[in-house]
Design a protein around this nucleic acid. Structure first.
Lengths: 359, 359
DNA sequence: ATGAAAGCGCTAACAT
DNA sequence: ATGTTAGCGCTTTCAT
């Protein structure tokens, strides 16, 4: 069914672009098609919507008229009549965690395949965030909402979810709310990275943490603890440093460390890639290198990580987008969906932690 | 006027989120508000749309009803009646040049300030690109179209522009088409970079070009020539290398160069940052460094450039987005606009070309 | 299989 | 300043 619809659309749009509505200015409507093909508007609508109850001959006549007139269906009218927009709203935080484009592509991929459109907004700050969401919540704008990594309170989300509009949260679960959520398996990812470091025999392992209160930081650190516990070692509190998840954070830490003259740890696990890259850069500036002077592992597997040979935990951003998109559309169309999805992460071993396996 | 409208919306949305439509399932309409407040729907509409011709007392009554009922205006109905959607469509290429998020934010910034929404699509490949554009061209979906850096032919664009829908092109001019375009000043940017290198006294300057046929590559190379000409030198053809604009391109070039044992040039101008970063990485792997063993300049000023101390030409992506957004909305609302805008670029001097000024 | 007609929720003349 | 009314373009019963 979707396939047919697409075919139809391509057909029409091809026409549009070939000979542009030469007639008058007024846009072509079903009425016009109806008149031109000698059938009722109801039948025209049936043809447009691939209803099987149209005699082939009739269908052809209508299609011909559509083509001749360069008819295109009007979205607003259709949405108004059907009470759905075939559009899903996406709200991202204004500060770019760097992933959003990947996630958005994932969302888009699936949405397109289901013939859905995307309405996106970036929120700058909390009040604006609320406004944006509230705006999309307005009946008729979108059929579902995907919210990524926003700062709004659980309470706000819970209230928002009272409306009939399906909501999907990326990178954040909410208890007690009728919303779907998709996250990545931060814990296992961090566990794997830490375990790898431990298996390599490193003992003095520093951890550059993320900011307090973010779920990613919390879970990743939790993963570290799990790995340590399993290995029967304890994390050295003195080697756990607070970070911001920004590049500067890693850069500054390492710079101070080197300035202080203290000996470096054998290895460091930066809880995201930008920080790891900051660390690398600070070392490079001092003529030190990874993994010679210190092993290093990151988290997220941003594009640059590959280029720098940084061992890191791959966060499946694209897939998160896809999953969110699937959940949203499935909620809209009434399909069954798992309300909580946790996507697996995977350790990608490169040269920064001392073993040369992949590049 | 926009301010008032926003106030109103915030008002309403506040309500929405406070006490959720407790009543029945049916969404609240102007009719309901009309009934509840004892005025006609026309007046309700006037209040909603900030018409000045409403007695304050009446306005208050209506506002009260709106609040009590948790009324939200229906976008589709409004769009259908007004024949405008307050939405602008944005089509990006599926392959991420890395900028698109910046540009999108710029577009969003201005759009939001004018109370417009964004509908975005990524096209994968040429046919899909056409489809996406054609789809948005459908009356009623969006009020204007911003196309970024797509591969479609001038002819296609020209035909698309025949429709009444305003079109704004980013990073590409089209002759003879009734479209607006915003670009960056590649020529002056490259000229400045090249001139800088020449002023520093470098003579053997290699150029790592972009792919043939892309306007960015062409113009940037042109800028190089202009600088050379003005300085009274000629570009050494043997030092001009074809590139792809991808990281790998720079990496491979430099690797081969080093493998070949040929002496390095004194300086290199990579016509975009990713390639420059590839070059740096290849050098780093050989224990060479910038600018000690070779000066290096990039183009675009991506985020990592700052971290790596790469001298480069700043491309104002955010501003491009803003400008495109302005142009689009201004075309929609009938305001006058420059149809061609070329945004200035700026050389950002960091340590990679041999002088330590900024960091 | 097809048509007639009643909306979907809102706006915008036109009247008063 | 406010009300009446006729659409906007499409879908969808309900008849036939």
């Amino acid at each position: 069914m979707p396939v047919d619809v697409n075919d139809y659309i391509q057909d029409v749009s091809g026409t549009i672009l070939r000979d542009v509505a030469g007639d008058n200015g007024r846009p072509v409507t079903v009425q016009d098609v109806s008149r031109q093909s000698g059938v009722s508007t109801a039948t025209v609508s049936r043809v447009i919507n691939q209803s099987p109850k149209v005699r082939p001959a009739t269908r052809v006549r209508v299609l011909k008229a559509i083509r001749e007139l360069g008819y295109m269906r009007n979205h607003s009218a259709r949405a108004l009549a059907r009470q759905r927009t075939d559009t899903i709203g996406v709200v991202f935080p204004g500060i770019d965690s760097g992933f959003f484009s990947e996630v958005l592509k994932g969302i888009n991929e699936y949405a397109v395949s289901r013939d859905y459109h995307l309405m996106v907004a970036f929120s700058q700050g909390l009040p604006d965030e609320h406004d944006r969401v509230a705006e999309y919540l307005q009946a008729g704008r979108v059929d579902a909402l995907i919210l990524m990594n926003l700062g709004m309170s659980d309470q706000f989300i819970r209230q928002a979810s009272q409306r009939e509009l399906p909501i999907v949260l990326i990178d954040r679960p909410v208890k007690d709310a009728r919303v779907a959520s998709v996250m990545i398996d931060n814990i296992s990812g961090a566990d794997a990275a830490m375990s790898h470091l431990l298996a390599l025999g490193y003992e003095r392992i520093a951890i550059l943490n993320g900011p307090d209160g973010t779920i990613d930081a919390e879970q990743r650190f939790q993963g570290c603890q799990r790995a340590a516990k399993r290995a029967g070692v304890t994390l050295n509190k003195d080697l756990v440093w607070p970070g911001t998840f920004f590049w500067e954070s890693g850069y500054e830490l390492m710079k101070h460390w080197l300035d202080s003259g203290k000996t470096l740890p054998e290895a460091m696990f930066a809880l995201n890639d930008p920080m790891a890259m900051g660390v690398m850069e600070a070392m490079r500036e001092r003529g030190l290198s990874v993994p010679k002077d210190m092993a290093l592992v990151g988290f997220d597997d941003v594009q640059a990580a590959r280029h720098l040979g940084l061992t890191t935990v791959h966060s499946p951003m694209r897939e998160m987008g896809r999953a969110a998109s699937e959940a949203a559309i499935s909620l809209v169309t009434g399909g069954r969906t798992r309300l909580e999805r946790v996507l697996p992460t995977e350790l990608v071993i490169r040269r920064s932690c001392g073993v040369e396996r992949e590049s």
